[in-house]
Design a protein around this nucleic acid. Structure first.
Length: 472
RNA sequence: CGCGGGGUAGAGCAGCGGUAGCUCGUGGGGCUCAUAAUCCCAAGGUCGUUGGUUCGAAUCCAACCCCCGCAACCA
């Protein structure tokens, strides 16, 4: 049996999840469910990036104790996944001191043993507001950061540990060019390669306790420093499946077959993560799928604009599966897509109520009237759908399935089963039943609950039932 | 000269070298099994502008004009 280990990104848990997180979870879920159907031993992981300084800041602002704060927010991510029928096999927390801390220290020690970690005095411009360093070209014309105009930056000097990223530049280019580490889509692969043509700077991978507010994984044998959050967060992909605490389990799962991420964190996944793994002498992940962002009513989501969209009320009002359908069918995986409530409703009516739901209802009624039973058959995913999922073209896969729905509708109108005698109608309805069963099976990874409902409705005695998707 | 994406019917999008296509909406017709559903037909576009390459360009090249992102720690 093949194994398939897939991950969604490990989000910062400094705020509640929004619809962008939902998109990623759902995309990964479809791919995971598809591999499950193929019979692969599939594991789908996400978790909480809990050791980031941003979490400390957000907790202070909220006046909540830090551990409690990250626990609450991680829980919100987990609950969102459940509400959207996203099944994670592992949801791993960065603040897990029993298993994750030792895992990150282990990764550190491996990189250190390879001679890739060294101490250096870092001098930089520090924005107290952001609690982050900036290079001069990242600042506005007044030499101030964009978040806190009017605030002077401090010149700070601090001793940190650095990772020799520069050492892996050539190797990374080779791995990515050859698709040994396959980045999809190609435009993103090219973006990474063009970035890799410039000299890579070594990466600061620790902070003083003072700057880290004593939060995060301590540097081994130097309790005055904490490990930089990205070195730590990326390692959740490994620690979540046993790295550092159950080597046998780890060997079973690693390397990851696919990381699903958003375009904003491509450098960490395309460059840092493989570099850390190379340094530590561990196996590299096999593939990276980079999705784009959702705009809301044509605008970028942002806290200052106040248009950050929470998927949970939408799922509660319109149904989790309708939201899954919209996000999967109506957004291109490789370019930004827009969400608006109006388009969402239009899609529910046009595709789900009038399309899928109505087809199921009309065939069910015809079967009920003619007392035709559904025979349970062995089904397999249509190969067109499978290959579209494997190339992450989830919207096209659903387009293909909706083509099958249209065909079935046409067939009914052509054959006019309501005019036919009992003997003549039987083969026609049996053909329609098998079409619907096939459609339902193809839908399994996308709309798992709907798929189940249809399959059970068309097994044995078939009865007309309440609409799958009422018009709204 | 920072990097990238985009400008195609009323709206939203696909096509990316060879008679302009999809969804929604609109108009007409058919059907009655179905959730005012479904099926058929029709109207509607000088494919951002200008120039070039080509037998032929929405599709390639150049310049320009407008949108929108990103610019090492933001899904």
């Amino acid at each position: 049996m093949k194994k398939f280990y897939i991950t969604a990104a490990i989000p910062y848990v400094n705020a509640k999840p929004h619809i962008g997180h939902a998109l990623e979870y759902i995309q990964g879920d479809v791919i995971a469910r598809y591999h499950n159907l193929l019979g692969d031993k599939t594991t789908y992981l996400s978790g909480g990036d809990e050791n980031a300084l941003k979490n400390v800041q957000a907790a202070e602002k909220a006046g909540v104790e830090i551990q409690k704060f990250v626990d609450q927010n991680s829980q919100a991510f987990k609950e969102m996944a459940e509400k959207l029928h996203v099944q994670f096999d592992v949801f791993f927390k960065g603040s897990d001191k029993e298993r994750h801390y030792p895992a990150t220290q282990k990764l550190w020690n491996l990189c250190d043993a390879a001679g890739d970690i060294y101490k250096k005095t870092y001098k930089g411009l520090y924005c107290v507001g952001c609690e982050a360093f900036y290079t001069p070209d990242e600042l506005d014309e007044n030499g101030e950061c964009f978040e806190h105009p009017g605030k002077k930056l401090e010149e700070v000097e601090e001793e940190n540990y650095f990772f020799r990223l520069s050492r892996y530049q050539e190797k990374l280019i080779q791995l990515i060019e050859s698709d040994e580490y396959k980045i999809t889509p190609t435009s993103r692969k090219n973006e990474v390669l063009s970035f890799l043509k410039q000299p890579l700077q070594d990466l600061s991978i620790s902070r003083s306790n003072e700057r880290a507010r004593n939060w995060g994984v301590p540097v081994p044998e130097d309790p005055s420093q904490r490990i930089y959050v990205w070195f730590d967060a990326l390692n959740i992909y490994q620690s979540g499946v046993g790295f550092g605490w159950d080597e046998e389990k780890y060997k079973e799962y690693w390397p990851a077959d696919l990381h699903v991420i958003g375009k904003g964190i491509i450098r960490f996944h395309a460059i840092y993560l493989p570099a850390f793994l190379l340094s530590a002498g561990l196996q590299l992940s096999k593939a990276l799928f980079v999705h784009e962002y959702i705009t809301v009513e044509g605008k970028k989501m942002s806290k200052t604009v106040g248009n950050v969209l929470d998927p949970i009320p939408l799922a509660e009002e319109y149904g989790a599966e309708t939201l899954r359908y919209y996000l999967l069918a109506k957004l291109s995986p490789f370019s930004d897509g827009d969400f608006s409530e109006e388009k969402f409703k239009e899609t529910i009516n046009a595709d789900l109520a009038n399309g899928l739901g109505n087809l199921v209802a009309r065939v069910a009624k015809l079967c009920e009237q003619n007392q035709i039973k559904g025979v349970t058959r062995n089904l397999a995913m249509a190969k067109e759908v499978g290959s579209l999922i494997e190339s992450y073209k989830l919207n096209e896969a659903l387009g293909f399935i909706w083509g099958q729905i249209t065909e079935a509708d046409k067939k009914i109108n052509e054959e006019k089963p309501w005019e036919l005698s009992e003997e003549k109608v039987k083969p026609i309805l049996e053909d329609l039943i098998s079409r619907i069963q096939q459609i339902a099976f193809n839908l399994k990874p996308f709309l798992p609950e709907t798929s189940e409902k249809i399959i059970s409705q068309f097994s044995g005695t078939i009865k007309s039932q309440a609409p799958l998707f009422p018009r709204i």
